[in-house]
Amino acid sequence: MELRVLRYFLAVAQKRNITKAAQELLISQPTLSKQLADLEAELGVQLFIRGHRQITLTDEGEYLQTQAREIIQLVEQTALNIKGQEVISGKISIGAGESIAMNRIMQILSGIVKDYPDVKVRLISGNADEMETALQHGSIDFAVLMGNRSLNNYHHIQLPEKDQWGLIMRKDDSLANKVEITPEDITGLPLLMSEQAIEEHRFQSWWGNLDRKMNIIGTYSLLFNAQLMVA
C-alpha cells in the first residue's frame, strides 16, 4: 500500500463521495476510482459499499480507516522528528483522559508554545487503554494515564495530583446537599458509570455487598456526554 493511496482512501472515507473527494484531492474521478479499485484488489476485500448518493464503509473499510489514520500520523511525526532544522519546530502529541493533572501539562505546553511558536500541539482524548495502545503504536508521544497500571515498559514520572471520584446529579436533586455520598445513598438510582472503572472493579470495595442493588443503566468513557445524559 502506498501512502498516497492511503491518503486517497481517507479522503473518500471522510467525504463519503468519490466526486467530492476527487475535487479536494485535485485529481480526476476516474483516476481516484481506479486507485480505490486497485487498493481493494490488492487487499482482497471490499472497502466500500457504493450507493446512489453516497458510499459507506464495510467493516474492513472501517478497520483500514482507523489504521490508515495512525499510519499517516506516524509517518508525518517521524518526518518531523528526523528533519534537521535550525528553528525548533514539530508536533507534540499527547493522549490523556479527563484529569485535574492535565492543568499541569497544559501549563508546560503553554510555555513551550510561547518559547517555540513553530511547535504545534496535538491533544487526543480517550481512556487509559486507548492511550496506551496509541503510545505503543507511536501515534502519540506522551500519555497521561490514570489508575494503577504497569509502567515497566515506559519512561515515566508520577504526577502529584490526585483525582477523586464523585457523583454528578441535577442541582435540584436531594443528594446535591450532601457533603459525602455513601453506597446506601445511590442504591436503586439509575447510574451511569465509568466503563473502565466497571471493568477494573474499581468500586467493588466501596459498595461491598450492595453491588446487586446498584442500578447501572449505562457506561461512559469520557465524562462530557455523560453529563448531558444526567441533565
Rank of each mutant, 00 (worst) to 15 (best):
Q35L: 04
E24G: 05
Q14R: 12
Y154T: 07
Y220F: 10
A176L: 10
R212A: 13
G138A: 03
I88V: 15
W206S: 12
E180Q: 12
Y154D: 07
L123M: 00
K15M: 12
Q164K: 13
A22M: 01
G138H: 03
I18W: 10
W206V: 05
D115C: 08
I71P: 00
I105H: 02
N215I: 01
I71D: 08
D115E: 13
F9K: 07
Q85A: 14
G111N: 15
I217E: 06
V121W: 00
I82Q: 12
Q136L: 08
L6G: 03
N177C: 04
V87L: 02
L36F: 08
G44H: 07
M102Y: 09
M106Q: 12
R149E: 14
V12S: 10
E98W: 08
L80W: 08
H52E: 05
T78S: 11
S110F: 07
L36R: 02
L145P: 03
L57N: 09
L109D: 01
I112R: 05
R202A: 14
N225V: 03
F203D: 14
A197Q: 10
V144E: 03
V113R: 03
L151W: 13
V113K: 01
R16E: 13
S194L: 06
E195L: 15
E200S: 12
S221Y: 04
I71C: 01
E200A: 13
L109G: 02
R7T: 06
A41E: 15
Y220R: 03
E180P: 08
L80H: 11
G97T: 13
F142G: 02
N209A: 06
D59Y: 12
Q204E: 15
L167D: 01
E200Q: 15
R53E: 11
S205A: 15
P30T: 00
S174E: 14
H155T: 15
Y63P: 03
L10W: 10
E42M: 07
P183N: 05
R50P: 01
K114L: 15
H52R: 12
A128V: 08
I27Q: 02
L167W: 04
I72Y: 01
L109S: 06
L64M: 10
R149S: 12
K91F: 00
L192T: 01
Q77E: 03
R104Q: 15
I140Q: 03
T133I: 09
D38I: 04
L175I: 08
Y8A: 10
L26G: 08
K120I: 00
V12C: 10
L3Q: 07
R4A: 14
M193H: 09
V45C: 01
L64R: 02
Q73W: 00
D141H: 01
I49G: 11
N17R: 07
T187M: 01
M106N: 11
S125T: 03
N127I: 07
F224P: 08
Q29K: 11
I88G: 00
I105K: 06
E24A: 09
D172I: 09
S28P: 04
D129T: 06
D185A: 01
E2K: 14
G166R: 08
L175W: 05
S110A: 11
P183I: 07
E62N: 09
D59Q: 11
V75A: 07
I112W: 06
E76N: 04
D163A: 13
S194E: 13
E76C: 00
K91Y: 00
G111W: 02
T78R: 07
M214T: 00
Q65V: 05
R4Y: 05
F48M: 07
